[in-house]
Computed example of a mutant assay.
Amino acid sequence: MSEPATTPSIRIGTAPDSWGVWFPDDPKQVPWERFLDEVVASGYEWIELGPYGYLPTDPNQLADELGSRGLKLSAGTVFTGFHKGDDQWKRAWDQALDIAGLVSKLGAEHLVVIPDLWRSDATSEVLESRTLDDGQWTKLAAGHDRLGKALLEEFGIKQQFHSHADSHVGTTREVERFLAATDERYTNLCLDTGHFSYYGGDNLKLIDDHPSRIGYLHLKQVDTSLLFDVLKNDVPFAEAVTQEIMVEPPFGVPELGPIIERVAALDPQIFGIVEQDMYGCSIDRPFPIAKRTREHIFGETAAARVS
């Protein structure tokens, strides 16, 4: 008798961002010990590191804190500005030495890489042009391929590039251009479902068009009833977050179940990390949302698994 068919599934985790954590140290953010405890109480086993310095940076202490709670680490995060010139390499690699060096010791195999925003997420100040010229696009792509190659060779870590609201790579055409200019051996996507939808992107079409470039998922939904006001009135992304532009599922788009199923069919080793963007919220607000979000995802699809 043949074995019954099983549904391909991916590991679902969460991140400090879903608890409103954007910075290593901010008195308005939830203390890291409480964050870890509430992750466990929400039913997750996988987390991201979050901003470097929020969780303990000593690998032995971090391993103890996670291990005592049954938690595991999926990825760290760095920020890059390769379009600005060759001097950005040292900045990126210094971060990588710290962050990839730490997470690789705890078994993580991914680094989520977020490009610098043209408008500050801390002050909403306009820092540079919203678009890149051809020369800047060339520098951007070359820098990420160099970083991805170095991460793979030095740490066995895979670079996952994160398109982002208020960044130079956000729309479908920009993401497509970035993929065309980079090498999939070294540079692939952390497909953030909310940020890609922020500029009207079709997540399922992107997955279908570029299946080999999907290396990691951030799961979130955007509130379309607010989004058009945000875009029409040129509201900075940081301000839009305080208005709850990223909304608790299932009250936004895109629908997460079909995306999880499509990606699970590609590669069951891909992570789906819930990352809602809740900076500025009260410290008591994230936990019940995190718990309900996990229940929603696992109730919507059989392609989600805990570990």
Score class of each variant (00 low, 15 high):
M1F: 10
E3H: 06
P4N: 13
P16G: 05
D17I: 13
G20V: 08
D26C: 09
D26E: 14
K28A: 15
K28C: 07
Q29N: 10
V30L: 15
V40I: 05
A41C: 06
S42M: 09
S42E: 06
E45T: 13
E45H: 14
E45Q: 13
I47H: 03
E48K: 08
P51Y: 02
P51H: 04
D58R: 03
N60A: 14
N60R: 12
Q61L: 15
D64Q: 14
E65T: 12
R69I: 02
G70S: 11
L73I: 08
L73N: 02
A75H: 13
F79M: 09
G81T: 06
F82Q: 04
H83I: 00
H83W: 13
Q88M: 13
A92T: 12
A92C: 09
W93Q: 10
W93H: 09
A96P: 00
L97H: 06
D98T: 10
I99F: 00
I99C: 01
G101Q: 08
G101V: 06
L102F: 05
S104A: 11
L106K: 02
H110I: 12
V112T: 07
V113T: 11
P115W: 01
L117V: 01
R119A: 01
S120G: 06
S120F: 03
S120L: 03
T123L: 01
V126C: 02
R130S: 13
R130Q: 11
T131W: 12
D134N: 13
T138M: 10
H144F: 08
L152A: 15
F155R: 02
F155N: 04
K158L: 10
H164C: 04
G170P: 00
E174A: 11
V175F: 03
A181T: 01
A181N: 13
D183F: 11
R185T: 05
T187P: 00
N188W: 09
T193W: 06
H195P: 08
D202F: 05
I207C: 04
H210T: 07
Q221R: 04
S225R: 13
F228E: 15
F228I: 15
V230T: 09
L231S: 07
K232R: 15
N233M: 02
D234W: 04
F237M: 11
A240V: 09
E244I: 05
E248I: 03
E248G: 00
P250K: 01
G257Q: 12
V263C: 10
D267Y: 07
I270M: 06
F271K: 01
F271Y: 15
F271V: 11
G272D: 07
I273E: 05
V274I: 15
V274M: 12
V274T: 08
D277H: 06
C281W: 14
S282Q: 13
R285L: 13
R285D: 12
K291C: 00
R292H: 06
E295P: 00
G299H: 06
E300D: 14
A304S: 11
A304Y: 03
